[in-house]
Design a protein around this nucleic acid. Sequence first.
DNA 1: AACTTGCCTGATAGTAACTGTCAGGCATTA
DNA 2: TAATGCCTGACAGTTACTATCAGGCAAGTT
Lengths: 131, 131
Amino acid sequence: MYTIKNVAEKLNISEHTLRFWAKNGFFPFVKRNKNNIRIFEENDLEWVKIVKCLRSVGLDNKSVKKYIEYCIEGDSTISKRYKLIKETKTKAELQLSELQKQIQLLNYKEEYYMKLINSHAKDTWNPMNKK
Amino acid sequence: MYTIKNVAEKLNISEHTLRFWAKNGFFPFVKRNKNNIRIFEENDLEWVKIVKCLRSVGLDNKSVKKYIEYCIEGDSTISKRYKLIKETKTKAELQLSELQKQIQLLNYKEEYYMKLINSHAKDTWNPMNKK
DNA sequence: AACTTGCCTGATAGTAACTGTCAGGCATTA
DNA sequence: TAATGCCTGACAGTTACTATCAGGCAAGTT
């Protein structure tokens, strides 16, 4: 059982963001204790993780909300949820390969600069370098 | 030799964004023809690619600008550039492993929904499902 | 000559998803 | 009694675009 602060620490999401998500209806199931304080159960944490996952993969808040609404609707929406997750995964995999490409480029640059440093040569790539 | 539109098409960046970057001093070397039109050389394209790379990896515009200013300063800043690229690469690699984790989670969810669909079982994970 | 197209500029407003900050309120704990 | 932790609401600020409008020049087409 976690307060919003505990969740924030545990999942490395700011408290502010969690409240922002809460206000946007991202945690419709979370119970409150008699003092009106949100209490997240272990199971709820898994849910927050999914939300974090969807967001971090670039799904916008509107679509996250849609997913949540499917969940509220119940088992009749399982295939819609399946589709949404699957499409999101496909996009994430594209991002992954794109990211790998960019890392390769960074690596190339890193090595290039490394060689320049070691050889005391001029940077002939830099278009701003006087010829 | 490319106009801004050609570059936009070739590198899949919107014309608007390229102009935005240009206004922010991201392409200090680009020449203009007699009609004041920006002409990107083959070499300049490589530069735009680097900018795109740095941005897509999450480096903010301020830091991109800093990198560019190092380049303008010339060979005396090579080790600073090396450091910047190296740190950026490290962050990108962290992103990569984070993304891989999230994809695993999506994959798990996808398979879970798949099984539900095939077995016509109830979704026991959904905290909103009536018990 | 008139028109369309492609490039240029500047200005302004809108967007998403936070992020920061203040103010006020209730309840538990020191 | 005071500090702490949670709650709420409101509103301004941020980043990096993105959209839209307006006006202008130059080259090619009709």
